[in-house]
Amino acid sequence: MKIETFHDLIDWTRQLHAHLAECLKHCATRQEETRAKWLLEYLADHEATLEQAVAGFEKQADPKALHTWVYDYLSHAPIAPHEACRSPYAAMSFEDICREIFALHDQVLELYRYLEGRAEIPEARDLVRELLKLEEHEAMRLSQQTNRARDL
Rank of each mutant, 00 (worst) to 15 (best):
R125Q: 15
L134P: 06
E116L: 08
E120L: 10
L115Y: 04
Y112M: 09
E120Y: 08
R125I: 00
L104C: 03
D126C: 09
L111N: 00
E136K: 14
K133C: 10
L115A: 00
R113T: 01
Y112C: 00
V128S: 01
L134I: 10
R118G: 07
E136Q: 15
R129D: 05
E116W: 10
G117R: 09
E130M: 13
K133R: 12
E135Q: 12
V128E: 01
E136G: 10
E123I: 10
L127D: 11
Y112T: 07
L115D: 02
E135H: 08
A119Q: 09
E123S: 15
E135P: 03
L132G: 12
L115V: 09
R129L: 04
D126S: 14
Q107P: 05
E120T: 12
L132N: 13
L132Y: 13
R118K: 15
E120C: 08
D126T: 14
R129V: 07
Y112A: 02
L134R: 08
G117N: 11
L134N: 11
L104P: 04
D126M: 12
L111A: 00
P122F: 05
I121G: 12
Y114A: 03
L111H: 00
R125E: 13
H137I: 10
E130T: 12
A119R: 01
L134K: 04
